[in-house]
């Protein structure tokens, strides 16, 4: 059951969402009884072990898939299909390779029938993400970080209710990743944009989040909801604060168990590792 005490219907709410793939003879449960809320105006981070079903959750919220059971609402209305209220930044870049940067950014407004009036907005956004000089380049002429920023512009021009980001910085080198994180903070702190951010990196998760949703290994369910009370505006210095270390240690503990489960699933040697871990815990360590 969805916990009580959630302030309003605004934002995205998942209630007991379950998703299974396959037919009646051979189905794989990916998400099970998952309930959480992405609060309006907050940056909510979903974190869990690899392969736990985070991308499926994103696809469900975006409307690309329908839940097997349970309910997903956005501002009180059921999510029935993809709309521009819920836009996704995918793991792999999905800029349209056959369009230039500015054409990509203008795509939403053009198909929505307001192409002409959006041109200035597009140029402003591109300036904001630092790509104004690259507006006539094709995506394959941009670096990884630049492509992500272009995609961000393409999404933001449509002013979505909620921005869904599925491990958007995965695959970037450590330095670019850090810069993109700082960049995201500068862009969105205080903007009021509702964001649901998926990652496997704990540092990234705590740095960015207003609220953390810890997911279990497959099938994904919510292990814990943690408000991140670190003060804003944040930057890299937050990593050395005491509160950060407490939060990280807590999150790490839970995620380690979950990661161990999915690591061990199907592997005998890894199952031994899980057993050893459990025995060590029972013996009173930690």
């Amino acid at each position: 059951m969805a916990p009580t005490g959630w302030s309003s219907e605004r934002g995205v709410i998942l209630s007991d969402v379950t998703k299974a793939f396959g037919d009646e003879f051979d189905s794989k449960l990916v998400v099970r009884d998952c309930s959480f809320k992405a609060e309006d105006g907050c940056l909510t981070v979903l974190i869990g072990p690899s392969g736990c079903g985070k991308t499926t959750l994103i696809n469900l919220i975006a409307g690309y898939e329908q839940p097997t059971s349970g309910r997903i609402t956005c501002d009180g209305k059921d999510v029935l299909g993809p709309t521009r209220d819920r836009l996704v930044l995918f793991q792999e870049t999905s800029l349209f390779p056959w369009m230039t940067v500015i054409q990509n950014v203008m795509y939403g407004p053009i198909v929505q029938g307001r192409g002409e009036s959006a041109k200035t907005h597009a140029l402003d956004l591109l300036a904001k993400v630092g790509l104004r000089d690259f507006r006539d380049k094709y995506p394959n002429q941009l670096s990884g970080g630049m492509q992500r920023r272009a995609e961000l512009a393409r999404t933001l021009i449509n002013q979505p209710r909620i921005l869904l980001m599925d491990e958007p910085f995965r695959g970037l080198d450590a330095m670019t990743r850090q810069l993109m994180q700082e960049y995201l903070l500068r862009l969105f702190e205080g903007s009021g944009q509702t964001i649901l951010f998926v990652t496997t990196e704990i540092d990234e998760a705590i740095l960015l989040a207003d609220r953390l949703v810890l997911l279990s290994s497959t099938p994904a369910t919510v292990r814990e909801l943690i408000p991140v009370d670190l003060p804003r505006p944040r930057d890299m210095s937050v990593f050395s604060t005491r509160r950060y270390v407490e939060l990280k240690s807590h999150v790490l503990g839970i995620l380690y168990q979950e990661a161990l489960q999915s690591f061990a699933a199907g592997s005998r040697a890894a199952a031994d590792l899980v057993q050893a871990f459990e025995m060590r815990h029972k013996a009173g360590a930690g």
């Binding site: 975006a62 299909g81 993809p82 709309t83 996704v88 995918f90 349209f96 795509y107 939403g108 198909v111």
Partner: peptide
């Protein structure tokens, strides 16, 4: 790429847009 289709759908493409633009 399915993500191109998904992105195009979310951004509000009609079937005509999907064909001619994607």
């Amino acid at each position: 790429d399915p993500n191109h289709r998904r992105a195009a759908l979310s951004l509000g493409s009609t079937p005509r847009d999907m064909f001619w633009r994607i």
